[in-house]
Nucleic acid binder design. Structure first.
Length: 430
RNA sequence: CGGGGCGUGGCGCAGCCUGGUAGCGCGCUUGUUUUGGGUACAAGAGGCCCCCGGUUCGAAUCCGGGCGCCCCGACCA
């Protein structure tokens, strides 16, 4: 992308509505614009991040055999009357009426809908288990939206649902989801910790929240240092992984157990703050019973499938990652989800030597590069590159360019290398 | 939902108390300058002062109502 042509409206000053770092930086770096309280438009750079996160989420869901579907944002109130939640959900549910006065709602979640779909189409135990998921916009009419995308009303969420024959199957599914989630967060490039959680409004017996560590997180977290070095990508057995995750100490402040904490060797104790970016639930037959979803078993008897649901806040993750990874100058994107891998800074736009070298670099990197080809001062380009936080900056000035040299800056560490152009390219691509 | 605050050019703000027809910084346009960390100078463009109503000779300013947005708390993926 050529910055001179891109819709990436960066801001030198912080709009007054933004208080916390991620919100400020998302606005300043031109990722989003607010359209109404808690409702945001995603601009090209922001959308690229959102898409990259969704892609990783999708790959890890597919890996464990989940199947992607896409359910609508608008749902019928009747569906929710079946489970009894239409009345129970309260004002957070945005209720709307169509021209025929039919009651509709903008879905805050999809348990009812997916249960109806599976119920209407799955009749035999032979067709279980099923694990559909989708990545779709949701709406919860929060009393008080805040923190930008971290607590918006409209948000992008991956929500998955599982239907198993029995508890053992459901528990196995639950464990494989936990592993998939930890793999997902690790691939994104952040440290996430699963914590035992309350089941809240959704109801059920077994639930974990996933918190990523960020100094500005809304809840205090206590955990064993083992989580800092855990390797979900290397784990192969969901049972063993689950065992390890749930026996290593981790708790949010409201669940913190001082006596258990006292057992942890001091050098392994870690305290910090966390932002919840996902939650998983096992809730048994709550919805299958309420919505009369029964299938015929091998013995010819009807039974209710065992269910669970599993969410990842995709749009919230964007904000959460920035909370975890930024400095005074701007965002520091993890490589896997950075909108572009590298920025090319042409320090003297219009100079034949720098123009030529920059064009070569841009051609070589293609879609992975954001080329700052604007007529701007070097200082402005540096400042904006740091703000936007791409992992690498290829800095091309007239002196270096004459010798085929560029300066490669690593955003996360601030390291700079004077390198021949092809070596710099190799490093960026590595 | 309780409490507080704000709404003036694209962004950040002053002006409002003590009514007299709108200003500053940044950004934008043009030119010169500068050329490796948001350069300097000059000349420009750009405003239904959130909306509606009232008071007044006159309202950004005072009064009433409405809308929007933010912050703290309770609540939440």
């Amino acid at each position: 992308m050529r910055l001179s042509k891109a819709l990436i409206p960066t801001l030198k000053e912080t709009p007054s509505e933004a208080q916390i770092a991620s919100h400020r930086l998302m606005l300043r770096a031109g990722l989003i614009r607010q359209m109404a309280s808690g409702i945001y438009a995603w601009l090209p750079a922001g959308l690229r991040v959102l898409t990259k996160i969704a892609d990783i989420v999708r790959e890890e869901q597919d890996r464990i055999g989940a199947q992607e579907v896409l359910m609508p944002t608008i749902q019928s109130a009747d569906l929710w009357r079946e489970s009894g939640r239409y009345e129970a959900y309260g004002k957070e549910m945005l209720r709307i009426t169509d021209r025929h006065d039919r009651e509709l709602l903008y879905g805050p979640t999809n348990e009812e809908m997916i249960t109806a779909i599976v119920r209407d189409n799955i009749k035999s135990y032979r067709d279980l288990p099923q694990m559909p998921y989708h990545i779709q916009w949701k709406f919860r009419d929060e009393v008080r939206p805040r923190f930008g995308v971290l607590r918006g009303r409209e948000f992008l969420m991956k929500d998955g649902y599982s239907f198993d024959l029995d508890f053992d199957g459901a528990f196995r599914t639950y464990k494989s989801i936990m592993l998939a989630y930890m793999r997902t967060f690790q691939r994104i490039g952040i440290t996430a910790i699963p914590m035992r959680a309350d089941t809240g409004a959704i109801g059920g017996d077994l639930s974990h929240e996933f918190h990523i560590l960020a100094p500005t997180g809304e809840s205090g977290v206590f955990f064993d240092a083992a989580f800092e070095t855990g390797d979900a990508l290397g784990a192969t057995d969901p049972d063993a992984f689950y065992e390890q995750m749930t026996t290593t100490y981790a708790a949010t402040d409201e669940k913190h157990d001082e006596s258990a904490w006292a057992q942890i060797p001091p050098e392994r104790k870690r305290e910090g703050r966390g932002i919840e970016v996902g939650q998983i639930f096992y809730f048994g037959t709550k919805y299958s019973k309420a919505m009369n979803f029964a299938v015929t078993g091998a013995d010819g008897q009807k039974f209710y499938p065992e269910m669970g649901s599993y969410g990842i806040g995709v749009s919230r993750l964007v904000g959460a990652i920035i909370e975890a990874r930024h400095d005074e100058a701007g965002i520091i994107w993890p490589q896997a989800i950075a909108p572009w891998r590298a920025a090319i800074l042409n320090l003297r736009q219009g100079d034949a030597t720098t123009d030529t070298l920059c064009e070569q670099l841009y051609q070589a990197l293609g879609a992975d590069a954001l080329y700052d080809d604007r007529e701007e001062r070097a200082g402005a380009k540096f400042a904006e590159a740091d703000l936007m936080g791409l992992p690498w900056q290829l800095i091309v000035g007239p002196k270096g360019a004459a010798k085929g040299m560029v300066e490669l800056k690593h955003r996360a560490t601030g390291e700079r290398f004077e390198l021949p152009a092809d070596e710099a390219l190799a490093k960026v691509r590595a």
